[in-house]
Design a protein around this nucleic acid. Structure first.
Lengths: 161, 161
DNA sequence: CTTCTTGCAAAACGTTTGCAAGAGT
DNA sequence: ACTCTTGCAAACGTTTTGCAAGAAG
C-alpha cells in the first residue's frame, strides 16, 4: 500500500466535484490525470452495483473500446482510488474483491447467498456501539465493515414455488 | 459449495463431543473418517489463533510429519468443515482466508492493520439490531460477520516512541 | 469389494510486476 | 525534456482439479 495524501471524506458528491477533487489529489501527489483514470472514476460513479475489477474491465471494453484499457491499469487505478479513500472494497471468500464508490454515506451490506445481490443499509445504533467497543478496548478505529448473509425476499419466494 | 447435512449449532464444546458429532456428520453423509480429517479438526480445536490453510498445513507437517498431509487435503477438509458449520472463515483482502472453529459462542472481530492481530468481541446490542434490520427488509439471515479495522493499543504505543 | 479419500502435479484463478513504448505536465 | 502511466506478457500466490493409488466401511 502506497501512501497517498487525500482529502476525501465520506460525503455524497456530485460528479463534477468528485472529479475536481480527484484532479487535485493527483496533482498533490505528482501523479498524472489520464483518460483511463477518468473513465474508471466515471464508470464507478455511474454504477450503483458493486463491481469486481473484472466487471469494471468489461464495462470499459464495451463503453470505451478505443482505449483498450488493460486489466493491470484497472487494478492499479482501483488501488490508487482505495488508498485515496475514493472507493472502498468488500472481500468475498478468497477469490475476489468488489469495489464501490466510498464517497457517500457510510453503510453496511446485506448479501444474498443465493443470487449474490447486495443491499445496503445503515443503522445508527450499530455505528454507536462500534465506537463504544473500540474505546473500551483501547483500539483506534480506522474503518469497519459488516456483512449480513442470508436469503433475500425474492429468492425466498422463488424457493417456495 | 456442497450441501452437507449438519447439526452443529454454535455452542462451546468439549473436544470429545465435537469429535463424536463430527463422526456422526460424516456417517450421515456417507463420508469417511480419516486420520487426516481427525488431525485437522484436532489442530483447529487446540489452536486459539485464526489459521490460514497454509498455517494449518505447516502445523500438520510439524506435528504429524508421517502423514505427509497434502495442501489439497487441507483445503478440501476446510471446505467440508465450513459447509458443516464446524469452522467459519474470515476474508482479508483478495489474498487469503483465515479459519477458526465455529463451535463456540458467536463473536465479531477487531483487526489491527499494523500487526494483523485479531481480537474477538461480542456485543449483544449489535446482535439484536441485526435481527431487527433483517426482519424489516424481509431477509432471512443465515450468518453475519463484522470486522472493525484499526490500530491496537500496543501498536499505538510503539508509534509514540 | 465398493466407494470415498488421498497425494501429487497440473491447471485455474485473481492479482501483481518488469519493461519498453507512450502520454501528461 | 522529464516523469509518470500504460499495455503487454510473464510471474506470483492461492485455491481447485484430474487422476491413479490407497484407505475406510
Amino acid at each position: 500500500m502506497i501512501h497517498v495524501t487525500t482529502n476525501f471524506n465520506n460525503k455524497t458528491m456530485e460528479y463534477e466535484e468528485l472529479l475536481n477533487d480527484f484532479k487535485k489529489l493527483l496533482k498533490k501527489n505528482n501523479l498524472k490525470f489520464t483518460i483511463q483514470r477518468e473513465v474508471i472514476l466515471e464508470t464507478l460513479y455511474n454504477s450503483d452495483e458493486h463491481l469486481t475489477p473484472e466487471d469494471l474491465h468489461h464495462l470499459l471494453q464495451t463503453k470505451y473500446p478505443e482505449l483498450k484499457t488493460g486489466i493491470a491499469t484497472v487494478y492499479r487505478t482501483l488501488s490508487l482510488l482505495e488508498d485515496s479513500h475514493v472507493v472502498t472494497s468488500l472481500s468475498f471468500g478468497a477469490q475476489g474483491k468488489k469495489y464501490e464508490l466510498g464517497v457517500k454515506i457510510h453503510h453496511d451490506h446485506l448479501i444474498c447467498t443465493e443470487c449474490g445481490k447486495i443491499t445496503e443499509f445503515v443503522d445508527e445504533e450499530i455505528e454507536k456501539r462500534q465506537h463504544v467497543i473500540t474505546k473500551k478496548l483501547g483500539f483506534k478505529m480506522t474503518d469497519h465493515s459488516m456483512q449480513i448473509y442470508g436469503i433475500c425476499k425474492e429468492c425466498q419466494e422463488k424457493e417456495n414455488n
